[in-house]
Nucleic acid binder design. Structure first.
Lengths: 173, 173
DNA sequence: CGATAATCGTTATTGGTCATATCAAATAGT
DNA sequence: ACTATTTGATATGACCAATAACGATTATCG
């Protein structure tokens, strides 16, 4: 079933494509009517997010990286020389909760904390060689398994449109 | 692995643009490069979901209903005579965790558990009059404040397209 | 300079969500 | 009857999110 991205802006009818008999009145799940729940954007957002995260974790089992850990490694790699506060706040992680997370990553020798010379309060974060290797493998797994499958299900154009709208929500909402 | 800046297919972008110079190379947040994070669908999904939920809760402060509570009331209303297992599993809530939730709703006299005559193990769930009243007010708040604002930010056509894609993800992914 | 305020990483703690195992009561299957 | 399954419930543990507070360090400015 293809998602009609360019479907005419028929707001009142969300156009649940043509597979159901004409009298099908409402979305169901296991014989239970979903009511206006299927029109609630937040509900669909959460369900979709859980599924996507599940698949991400599944694709990462060999490397044992959670979505949060992956994003941390990615950010440290792209922003060498940043301290914990900067990396954490960028990801919406509170500083106290970031400590245990870094303990884990540093314990696996994927990154290191180095006392800054300029400001000896702060810890500069850097990836180790092992961290860079794992990150590279993780990126490949994400691209070839996770995102590739998203592309299959959604189609490239829809995937791009979805990404843009989600970014809009996170930015302007 | 380039971040395609506005390849943007048919979706009309809700007015934001024109602030970045034409050579803007990469998404940033507080001077920190996001790297391929801005291309990760799961990441954007989570950030967007958190924002939308925040707004939902904000719109519901007067009624004190969480997204989960709202969806439970909605489902009970649309499916009278169902028991806890059926309602919970439809929402992806585990039965043990559903108990405390119902305790809360029943304590506020929004719904009741009634022993089933057919199967005296199960509890039939029904809304009270107060529950129906609150639900009606909640629906109105969601429509006029929450979803209305989503419509403003995304535009009606985009909102419908987004909803359809999220449903696709939750269904076929 | 020196006192005060602010920042950084950290610890402790609390509250919330999610998941598993288990239980008594009731039912279903044989 | 005997066993297995189901329903609601309890307890518990893992994991996040959020706040307050502390020692060490740096910044402010009188």
């Amino acid at each position: 079933m293809t998602v009609s991205r360019t479907a005419d802006p028929n707001v009142s009818k969300p156009a649940r494509a043509a597979r159901e008999p004409a009298d099908a009145p409402e979305a169901e799940a296991g014989g239970i009517r979903m009511g206006e729940l299927s029109e609630l954007l937040g509900y669909s957002l959460k369900r979709a997010q859980l599924r996507v995260f599940d698949d991400f974790i599944r694709c990462m089992t060999s490397l044992n990286l959670t979505p949060a850990q992956f994003s941390v490694l990615l950010l440290i790699d792209r922003n060498p020389g940043r301290n914990q506060t900067e990396i954490a706040s960028t990801l919406g992680i509170l500083r106290p909760n970031f400590v245990a997370m870094l303990d884990g990553l540093e314990g696996r020798e994927l990154c290191v904390r180095v006392r800054s010379a300029n400001d000896r309060r702060s810890h500069i974060l850097m990836l180790t060689d092992k961290g860079r290797t794992i990150l590279a493998r993780a990126k490949k797994l994400v691209a070839t398994r996770h995102e590739a499958r998203l592309n299959e299900v959604l189609g490239p154009a829809n995937r791009a449109a979805l990404l843009e709208m989600l970014a809009t929500l996170a930015r302007d909402f």
